[in-house]
Design a protein around this nucleic acid. Structure first.
Length: 560
RNA sequence: AGGGGAGUCGCCAAGUGGUAAGGCAUCGGAUUUUGAUUCCGACAUUCGCAGGUUCGAUCCCUGCCUCCCCUGCCA
C-alpha cells in the first residue's frame, strides 16, 4: 500500500478504537478480522468490509486476520476459499500468518459446549424443527420452554457425546443454549448452537457429523484469536447480546471478550448485491459467469479493469456509519477514473471509424508523430504514431450541420489532429443512402505539433486519428451498467425486468499498433473515450481484447 | 409483550451544550493539443417534527413521525 494513500476521515469506529488505545483497554492490542463464509464470490459490499477491517488495522498499527467462517459443510467449498484469498490479496491487503478457519476450532468449540452443558447453560433438545418453531412464540407473545429443557447435565452430556459419535440422524437432536424463551430478542430464545449434519466438510472431511452454528462459533473464534474489535454489519446488532452472553459464560476458560461493532452495509445503485440475485443472473445466463465484468463481484470488477486502489479510495470516500444509505454508482465510477487517470498510459483507438482524407497530403508519405504516454508523467516517454493521407477518425467527430457549440469537424472548420497538424474541413462524401463514407480536409503544413510556431493557428477542436494503413483491429467490449434503474427490483418488481439490454456491446475497433502487445490486465486510457483494460481471460498478444472499464466524463454529451 | 437500530445540504458524512468539518455532485470562472485532467470561487441562519430545560440546544428532556433489521437446525 503506498504511503501516500490518505487515511480515511474520522468515523465512529475510529473513535472507539482511539479511545480504547488511549485507555489501554485491550492491553494495547488492536486486532480486527474479515470473516467470509466460503460459499460464494466476494462482491463490492465485501470490498467495503475488507478495506474497513484491514485499513483500520493498518492505520492503528494492529493486525487483521482473514478467517473463514466455515461451519456449514453443505454450502462451502475450497474453490470459494481460493477465490476469496485471491480477491483479498488483489485488493492489496495482507493477513501475514493470520489465516484462520473456524473449522480449525471445532475441537475446542466442542469442549466449550460441554463446559456450557456442565454449567447448565446448554441442553440437548429433541424437538423437530417444526416443533421448535411453534414454540418460539412471536413478536407479541413469549416462547414456550421445550419439554426437554430440564434434562439433567449427565443426560445432556451423554446425548451430546452420542450426537458427536454419529448415533443419530440429521435433525434428531440439537444443542441449545439455555437462555430465555420469553426474551423479546429472538436470538436469546434458546438459540440452537449445534446441529447434526452427516456431511463432508471441505476441510475436516468426515471427522464431524455435528457442526456449530454461526452465533456460537463466531464470538468464540474472535475471542480465541484475541480480536479486539469485531466489526460486522447492522443485521447482527440483535445478535450482540448472544455474542456477549456466550463469551461471558466462557470468560473463565477463554478470558477474552472482543467488542462487536456494527456498521451499515453498502447499498449501491444500478446493481444488485444480494447473493440470491447474483446467483440468478449467473445461473440463468444473463451474464457470462461470476467474473463477468458487469457483475458487481470483485472478480468481475478486476476483469472489467476496476482497480484495487479505486476500491480503497471508494471506501474512504463513502465513509462508514450506522445509517442505511445508498451510494450512487457514479461515485464508484469516479473513484476508478481518479485512480486510472494517474496510472493508465494513453493510447489511441477509433471505436466507430470513418475515413478522413487529407487531400493536400502526399499519398506516399509516412510521417512520425510523437504522442506522450501520459500527459502528467513525462518520464513515461512518448511513442510514435504514423500519419498518412488517409486516416480513421470517429464518425461523431464530423457533423455536416453542426449543432450549437460543436467545434469538431464540419465544412469550413479547423481542428487539430492530435499530435499532428491542424486541418481544415472541406466537405464529405456520402453513399446513395445518405450514409457518410469519408470526410475531406486539407492540412496546414506549418502547424505540426512540437514544431516552432505550430500554435500560430488556433483550433478549438482536437481529435484523435489513426492511419488506415497502420492501424490494427481489436475486439472491444463496451460495458455499461447492468441495470438501467437505480434500484433494480424495487417495490417487489422482478429485478430481471430492470436489466439493461445494452449493458454490453462488442465491436471491432481500430487501434494503434502499440496496443497489439498489451499485457493482460494492463489498463489504458483510450484518449477521448475512457479507460480500457486488456481482458485477463481472452486477450492475447497480437489478438488483444479490450474491456471498457469506465468512460471519461463528457460535458458535451451531457449538455447535448 | 414486542425488541434492536437510524434520521445533519442532491448523495455520503464529521461534529457536539457556545452558535454546522470534509468529500462527491452541482453551478460559475481560469488553464488545457483529451469537450478529460488540473486550478480557483460559490454551495445548510440550519441538523425528521412539536414542545420543554438553558443565557444559549443539532447536541439534554418529553411526545410524535418516517425508514431499516429480527420468529434458519444460514452466515
Amino acid at each position: 500500500m503506498p504511503d501516500t494513500e490518505k487515511t480515511a476521515p474520522s468515523n465512529f469506529i475510529r473513535a472507539i478504537i482511539e479511545d480504547d488505545l488511549a485507555s489501554h483497554k485491550w492491553s494495547g492490542r488492536m486486532a480486527t478480522r474479515f470473516p467470509p463464509e466460503p460459499n460464494g464470490y466476494l462482491h463490492y459490499g465485501h470490498a467495503k468490509s475488507i478495506c474497513l477491517n484491514f485499513g483500520l488495522a493498518r492505520d492503528y498499527g494492529g493486525i487483521c486476520h482473514l478467517r473463514f467462517d466455515d461451519t456449514n459443510p453443505e454450502k462451502e467449498e475450497q474453490e470459494y476459499v481460493d477465490a476469496i484469498i485471491d480477491a483479498v490479496r488483489w485488493l492489496g491487503f495482507d493477513w501475514h500468518e493470520h489465516l484462520y478457519f473456524a473449522s480449525d476450532y471445532f475441537d475446542r468449540l466442542y469442549e466449550f459446549a460441554k463446559y456450557l452443558i456442565a454449567h447448565g447453560w446448554a441442553y440437548v433438545d429433541s424437538q423437530t424443527a417444526d416443533e421448535m418453531r411453534e414454540r418460539r412464540g412471536s413478536h407479541i407473545e413469549p416462547g414456550e420452554d421445550s419439554p426437554y429443557r430440564n434434562r439433567s447435565v449427565d443426560e445432556n452430556l451423554d446425548l451430546f457425546r452420542r450426537m458427536k459419535a454419529g448415533e443419530f440422524a440429521d435433525g434428531v437432536h440439537v444443542l441449545r443454549a439455555r437462555i430465555d424463551m420469553a426474551s423479546p430478542n429472538f436470538n436469546l430464545r434458546d438459540p440452537v448452537i449445534y446441529r447434526i449434519r452427516h456431511a463432508e466438510h471441505h476441510r475436516t472431511g468426515n471427522k464431524w457429523c455435528i457442526y456449530p452454528l454461526y452465533d456460537y462459533t463466531h464470538c468464540i473464534s474472535d475471542a480465541l484469536e484475541r480480536i479486539s474489535h469485531s466489526i460486522c454489519t447492522l443485521e447482527f446488532e440483535d445478535h450482540r447480546p448472544l455474542y456477549d452472553w456466550i463469551l461471558d459464560r466462557l470468560q473463565p476458560v477463554i478470558g477474552w471478550h472482543p467488542q462487536q461493532i456494527e456498521f451499515a452495509r453498502l447499498n449501491l445503485t444500478y446493481v444488485v448485491l444480494s447473493k440470491r440475485k447474483l446467483i440468478g443472473l449467473v445461473e440463468q445466463g444473463y451474464v457470462d459467469g461470476w467474473d463477468d465484468p458487469r457483475l458487481p463481484t470483485l472478480i468481475g470488477a478486476r476483469r472489467r479493469g476496476y482497480t484495487a486502489a479505486g476500491f480503497r479510495l471508494f471506501t474512504d470516500r463513502i465513509g462508514v456509519a450506522k445509517a442505511d444509505s445508498w451510494i450512487d454508482m457514479s461515485v464508484l465510477e469516479e473513484c476508478m477514473r481518479e485512480d486510472l487517470n494517474l496510472v493508465a498510459e494513453r493510447r489511441i483507438a477509433v471505436l466507430n471509424p470513418v475515413r478522413l482524407i487529407i487531400d493536400n497530403y502526399p499519398a506516399d508519405r509516412d510521417e512520425l508523430c510523437h504522442a506522450p504516454n501520459h500527459p502528467l508523467k513525462h518520464e513515461l516517454g512518448t511513442r510514435d504514431v504514423v500519419l498518412t493521407r488517409e486516416l480513421w477518425i470517429e464518425r461523431d467527430d464530423y457533423m455536416e450541420s453542426p449543432s450549437k457549440g460543436y467545434f469538431r469537424l464540419f465544412p469550413g472548420n479547423r481542428v487539430r489532429l492530435r499530435y499532428a497538424y491542424v486541418v481544415e474541413c472541406t466537405g464529405a462524401e456520402y453513399d446513395e443512402h445518405g450514409g457518410l463514407i469519408a470526410v475531406h480536409c486539407n492540412y496546414l503544413p506549418d502547424t505540426k505539433s512540437g514544431t516552432p510556431g505550430s500554435d500560430s493557428v488556433k483550433a478549438k477542436g482536437n481529435i484523435h486519428w489513426l492511419s488506415t494503413t497502420h492501424a490494427a483491429d481489436a475486439e472491444v467490449r463496451l460495458y455499461d451498467r447492468l441495470f438501467n434503474v437505480p434500484h433494480p427490483g424495487a417495490d417487489g418488481r422482478d429485478y430481471l425486468l430492470d436489466l439493461n439490454p445494452d449493458s454490453r456491446q462488442i465491436i471491432s475497433a481500430r487501434i494503434e499498433p502499440a496496443l497489439m502487445q498489451a499485457a493482460a490486465e494492463q489498463n489504458f486510457q483510450f484518449e477521448r473515450h475512457g479507460y480500457f483494460v486488456a481482458d485477463r481471460v481472452d486477450s492475447r498478444p497480437d489478438k488483444p481484447v479490450f474491456n471498457r472499464t469506465v468512460g471519461l466524463k463528457d460535458t458535451w454529451v451531457k449538455s447535448a
